Simulated assay, not measured.
Amino acid sequence: MPYRIARLRRRCRPLLDQLALPRPFSIEPLCAHLSAHRRRPLHLHPLPPQAAAAGACGLWVATDTDDHIFYEQRTARSHQEHIVLHEIGHMLFNHHAVTDTAGSPVGLLGDLSPRLVRRILARANYSTRQEQEAEMLATLIRTGETGPVRCPPSDTYGKLHAALGVSTDHEL
């Protein structure tokens, strides 16, 4: 298992190195940075009730001109942020939906025209490579794991800081 996680982290590293994470961390400045970097607007929306009722907690929808991320609104703010980061992970990895248009979740978004949607991804499970990549990237962004590889903290406070995503001086 640790080897698989290490490989997953290595796949995330090039994307992390391209990010300018805001300090202190906040979703809004990160989204503004990504929008400017990708040269296309990035919009955040609460997930429509019908999509949440169908079991989705996050969606990334790409049109010809914009990116839209939908997140579950009936959860804690930290969970909402993680959902957004997970969808950003799909966006940065340039993941594609693996279902055909008949199985597409476009219908969960109400009156959105399927002709406008170039790409749509919805979380279903974490067993696919795409889901694991997006989840790992979201976790690494949220915990601030960019820049130099960090040494694992050895003391209790260092471990607590690492678990909470608080920056420490334990760098190589």
Rank of each mutant, 00 (worst) to 15 (best):
residue 138 A to Y: 06
residue 20 A to I: 13
residue 116 L to V: 07
residue 111 D to N: 12
residue 121 L to T: 11
residue 105 P to D: 06
residue 136 M to H: 11
residue 167 S to G: 11
residue 59 L to A: 07
residue 6 A to N: 09
residue 17 D to T: 07
residue 99 T to D: 06
residue 159 K to S: 06
residue 52 A to M: 09
residue 45 H to P: 08
residue 125 N to E: 09
residue 128 T to V: 05
residue 162 A to W: 13
residue 171 E to P: 00
residue 64 D to L: 06
residue 84 V to G: 02
residue 74 R to K: 13
residue 147 G to V: 02
residue 84 V to Q: 01
residue 112 L to H: 12
residue 72 E to L: 06
residue 67 D to P: 01
residue 115 R to H: 14
residue 105 P to Y: 09
residue 56 A to T: 11
residue 110 G to A: 00
residue 128 T to F: 02
residue 97 A to L: 10
residue 160 L to I: 14
residue 109 L to D: 03
residue 85 L to P: 04
residue 172 L to A: 08
residue 114 P to I: 07
residue 18 Q to W: 08
residue 104 S to H: 13
residue 46 P to Y: 05
residue 29 P to Y: 02
residue 86 H to M: 02
residue 105 P to K: 05
residue 21 L to A: 03
residue 34 L to R: 09
residue 50 Q to N: 00
residue 91 M to V: 07
residue 115 R to G: 12
residue 74 R to C: 11
residue 18 Q to R: 15
residue 98 V to Y: 15
residue 119 R to A: 09
residue 126 Y to D: 01
residue 45 H to Q: 14
residue 73 Q to C: 10
residue 51 A to L: 12
residue 107 G to R: 03
residue 52 A to D: 10
residue 108 L to Y: 11
residue 11 R to Q: 14
residue 138 A to G: 08
residue 122 A to K: 00
residue 122 A to V: 09
residue 148 P to V: 07
residue 94 N to A: 14
residue 50 Q to V: 07
residue 103 G to F: 05
residue 38 R to S: 10
residue 172 L to C: 02
residue 150 R to G: 00
residue 134 A to F: 01
residue 1 M to G: 07
residue 15 L to S: 08
residue 138 A to W: 01
residue 122 A to N: 08
residue 103 G to A: 11
residue 118 R to C: 11
residue 97 A to H: 13
residue 48 P to D: 04
residue 70 F to G: 07
residue 37 H to M: 11
residue 128 T to G: 06
residue 55 G to R: 08
residue 108 L to P: 03
residue 60 W to D: 01
residue 95 H to D: 10
residue 104 S to I: 07
residue 15 L to W: 11
residue 146 T to G: 03
residue 36 A to G: 15
residue 10 R to H: 13
residue 41 P to Y: 13
residue 142 R to P: 05
residue 8 L to C: 15
residue 54 A to Q: 02
residue 82 H to Y: 05
residue 12 C to K: 09
residue 2 P to K: 09
residue 91 M to Q: 00
residue 53 A to M: 08
residue 17 D to H: 10
residue 75 T to G: 03
residue 81 E to M: 02
residue 58 G to Q: 04
residue 28 E to Y: 00
residue 164 L to C: 15
